[in-house]
Amino acid sequence: MKAFVTRHPTWSLIIGFVVAVLLWLIFAPWTEGMEDVLGRKRVFLNAIFGGVTLGALYFLVASGFTLIFGLMRNVNLAHGSLYLLGGYIGFEVSERTGSWLLAFPVVFVVVALLGLVLQNQVFRRMEGEELRQTMVTIGLSVVLADIMLWIWGGQSYTIFAPDWLSGPMTLPIVSGYRSSGEAVMLKYPAVRMAILFAAIVVGVAMWLILNRSRLGMLIRAGVDDREMLAASGVRIQYVFLAVFGFGAGLAGMAGIVGGTFQSLSPGEDTRFLLASLVVVIVGGMGSIPGAAIGALVIGLAEQLGLVYAPTYSVVFTFLIMAAVLAFRPQGLLGRA
């Protein structure tokens, strides 16, 4: 961070200014004039929080995608199918056992096992043939999507959150004032805050594992130079298996999260595949912090766009991607 500030003083100033303005908009009480221009503060706050929680969900999906890509150079276009499959399995588990929490480990194990099979039986056979791997993942996503349509049909499912997470919680942020002058605090669905919290925990844990553990060291070395790592005696296939299984399992768990605060239906797989693509393109391929920043930017752009320019919210996402491509093709945090 320090190195970034010394290298790009203007950019860090601009970024710092934007962040400061956003924080001030969130925490400061709004005046009458501001409400005239920007609308109700409650609406703005809801858009911001919606964007951040959506970004958290995108991060959960995209971090596995970017990790797999960074290590194995494999664009897994079946990632969205893993997400949707995880959501459906999570729905079945939570319906049958009545436990929302139990769904997470079950889905993680099942989808991670599927990921292991894919890596060991499919991708290992065509190592280095990137285009062919991509084609295979496309074929897999078509097959998986149709099998899921076969089993679960075309209707949409919602996974119900447990009682202790339902209902709103009060945040220490002023959203407006009553006529009596009394401050009204922002109320926000508790389950979304839990998702945000979980995403932050997952992100920090991934960062710690990548930067502080032996496995993380192996993964980072593999990202830098796969052949050299293999030549120095590391059984790189096991590292690949671990990363692919973990990334797939994470996508599956994200499916439960997505099924809880949105819904599961055919077509969601491509939506989330696409979201991960855009997030990873914006953030930089193979970078976990990049995925976090990209997810945050895309989530915020989507939600703020939905509130302030409903017709063109998709275009904002696209414009951000095009701008990043035009000025920094390797992504915000990607390495050239």
């Binding site: 664009v75 276009l77 991509t134 491509t270 696409l274 693509l277 393109i281 696209f318 491509l325 035009a326």
Partner: peptide, 20 residues
């Protein structure tokens, strides 16, 4: 836009634009 990238990146970017 797409020729700024190569190989699988081109697939990803054109897919994203097609979706947009």
């Amino acid at each position: 836009l797409a020729v700024r990238t190569e190989g699988i990146y081109t697939i990803m970017i054109t897919l994203a634009i097609a979706a947009a």
